[in-house]
Design a protein around this nucleic acid. Structure first.
Lengths: 201, 201
DNA sequence: AAAAAAATTAATCACTTGATTAAAACATCT
DNA sequence: AGATGTTTTAATCAAGTGATTAATTTTTTT
């Protein structure tokens, strides 16, 4: 039961590092924490990854890619906005259901280390998506809200639910299951609100 | 120019601590950082506040109170929802304009140290606000969206703009001023969307 | 099986951390 | 001025940090 996945050491370290980094952040994590979770000697983190920072950057890029790749895949699809927007919301929610601390991890580490951002954010799918919205506006299909603001509305309503989970659970006295139910219900409300606002005017 | 505010040492430390903690978080901050910003000897942080953790809790409670007090004051007012909701959004936006990293600071530190939450969150104004919304639903004044979900929508659209500022600035190639303009514009859109969705159905 | 290479370990290094201490500087009071 | 208490400082401590090393074990190659 200890090592259910008899993978190679390098992979064990990466998985442990991902877990610990996402939980405690870069500053709150020690290489000894990671070694303990991975069940290996502390020196091995340096043996395989040179330094704590190199390991962190690797993990961060993985997580970052994993996050944006799914979203970008949908953004880039040549389908109608009326279908695409709900798809985007659904995709985010299922992604976050599997990785609840992903948003807070990305946002706080990006703030601490802004240089982590540059390479992946130059990707084009966002801009394709923004252009598609501008076109829909020009054609009178959706309400004339500048695309960047629509993107902001989208992301806010998708991500904040997970960011504020600790507070919501406290205020509403939710347990894990109750919050998951709350999340499912909220997803439909978000879709309903966004679609109503954009397509009915 | 060095010490423009010739206040007492204790206050200088508190202000420096607040600045550094909000910027780097608890784990990323050293007492020497704080001492340097405050322009005092490192030993004084312990002389006045016993320990780094005690100082942090003090700062956190200050910030936390400052945040909720303004919001709660509005939530508790006996005015119509049609006026209250825009008021809440406006208040948040002006609060965050003055303290841009407040939301991320609160959310990330709360996640790392969940015990920071308990005392202040038991406050009643939220529940008063939630009851008021339930009543408005019963009277058919607003769309029947469970109040807790409305609260979530409200907070999401208010706070996320600030949480995602680094990413937005990068994607949109905004400078400081451009993002402030974006923020002002977004505030109106958020009010418009929420009011449309809740009051038109 | 022997030799060579790779992986793993325990021990340790240099440094930073929060915290403490003892002495010095400063202020207050008689 | 002199005594007393408070504030500030430099020096230091023990613990924890990322990283390195040299020895050991394991694996691979010959």
């Amino acid at each position: 039961m200890a090592d259910e996945n008899p993978q190679c050491t390098e992979q064990k370290i990466k998985e442990a590092a991902r877990k610990v980094f996402m939980e405690k952040g870069f500053d709150g994590t020690t290489t000894r924490d990671i070694a303990e979770v991975a069940g290996i000697n502390q020196a091995l983190t340096n043996y395989y990854f040179r330094s704590k920072e190199k390991l962190f950057r690797l993990i961060f890029e993985d997580v970052h890619r994993e996050f944006f790749q799914q979203i970008y895949a949908i953004m880039a699809q040549p389908i109608d906005l009326r279908d695409k927007l709900p798809l985007l919301v659904e995709a985010h929610f299922s992604l976050f259901a599997a990785n609840p601390d992903l948003p807070l991890f990305l946002l706080s580490e990006l703030r601490r280390h802004p240089d982590l951002l540059t390479p992946p954010s130059k990707d084009r799918p966002v801009f394709f998506f923004l252009r598609q919205m501008q076109q829909a506006i020009d054609e009178g299909q959706i309400r004339p809200v500048p695309p960047l603001h629509v993107l902001q509305l989208l992301m806010a309503n998708i991500q904040f639910l997970h960011l504020s989970r600790p507070i919501t659970m406290e205020i509403a006295a939710f347990d894990q299951a109750a919050h998951e139910e709350f999340t499912r219900r909220h997803k439909d409300i978000v879709i309903d609100m966004l679609m109503s606002y954009l397509f009915t005017f």
